[in-house]
């Protein structure tokens, strides 16, 4: 029982990370058909922003010493800020470019961010202790679950609820949904392209920062590569979910998380190192059956 509970929490918390990542990618894809491969580097940047530049192994903590109620908004603001800056300086210039061109631009931007961090902090992972109170376990029905997992899941649920009601109930959310479906038509109704796109980048960046916080607390390290795996899984989740579909991205994120965890415990020991290969195999199988994704990004089919 407690083992199953442990697996469930592992799956949900890993799925949460992937879902948040996928959401960040899908939000931007929705409004500008850009797959932002720099997303993973925004994750890393948000955490490094807590440290003073140094090449030591032990981090020289800067803003990371803030109490949690200031630290969390600070990190989210860094993610949002960097993301908005990326849109202003880079992606705005590629607005009318082909999706392939934009994707390449995002790779390039990712490299710029990564090498910037490399320059200031060196490539060695740094040990940090972010939100240390969260590393204690809690007892749930006899299982010892890390508090961080519980908080990750709860925070993700809260973010999903918040984002949903933001998109459903506010004027800005309505504009974003309209723009995601038909950008030109939305503009012809007076929806300001720059505002909507900047909003999408800000939200996406804040989501990346939230992932950074979770990863940083979980692993106790700040690593320039720390966003790479989540980014890859999140990208796959957005593809499985149907590019541009937010619910699809979230569901696929949780599915991927669950698949990874379940394979981790059910595969024979010798096969475990190849877990990801099995996950990708499953992804390929899904895409062969439903190339448009589980929930396709377009709305209900129009009738004439």
């Amino acid at each position: 029982m407690s083992a199953i509970l442990q697996i469930l929490f592992d799956a949900l918390s890993l799925g949460s990370l992937y879902a948040l990542g996928a959401l960040g990618i899908a939000l931007i894809f929705g409004v500008m058909r850009l797959v932002n491969f720099a997303h993973g580097d925004v994750i890393a940047f948000s955490i490094f922003a807590l440290l003073w530049p140094s090449v030591d192994v032990v981090a020289r903590v800067g803003a990371g010493n803030l109490p949690w109620f200031l630290l969390i908004p600070f990190v989210l603001a860094v993610g949002a800020g960097l993301s908005v800056l990326a849109e202003l300086t880079v992606f705005r210039r590629f607005r009318n470019a082909s999706p392939a061109t934009m994707m390449i631009a995002s790779f390039a931007l990712g490299f710029v961010i990564r090498y910037f961090l490399l320059m200031l902090y060196s490539s060695r992972p740094k040990s940090i202790s972010l939100l240390p109170a969260l590393s204690q376990p809690v007892e749930i029905l006899g299982a010892r679950i890390p508090l961080l997992q519980v908080i990750t899941i709860l925070a993700t649920v809260a973010i999903l609820f918040g984002l949903t009601s933001f998109l459903r109930r506010t004027r800005f959310g309505l504009e974003m949904r309209a723009a995601a479906e038909n950008f030109t038509m939305a503009r012809m109704l007076g929806v300001r392209a720059n505002r909507v796109i900047m909003g999408a980048f800000a939200l996406s960046g804040a989501l990346a920062a939230a992932i950074g916080l979770i990863l940083g607390s979980q692993t106790g390290t700040a690593d320039i590569q720390m966003g790479a795996n989540v980014m890859l899984m999140a990208f796959i989740a957005t593809v499985i979910g149907g590019l541009g579909s937010l619910p699809g991205a979230v569901i696929a994120g949780f599915l991927l998380g669950a698949a990874s965890v379940v394979m981790q415990v059910t595969l024979p020991i010798d096969a475990r190192p190849f877990r990801d290969a099995f996950v990708y195999g499953a992804v390929i199988a899904i895409l062969i059956v439903r190339p448009q994704g589980l929930l396709s990004g377009r709305g209900t089919k129009e009738r004439v």
């Binding site: 004027r171 309505l174 949904r177 309209a178 109704l189 007076g190 377009r298 709305g299 129009e302």
Partner: peptide, 15 residues
Amino acid sequence: DVFASLTIEENLMVG
């Protein structure tokens, strides 16, 4: 160009 996934009222409200 209706926004197919939005409701009618939401479509009207966009602009």
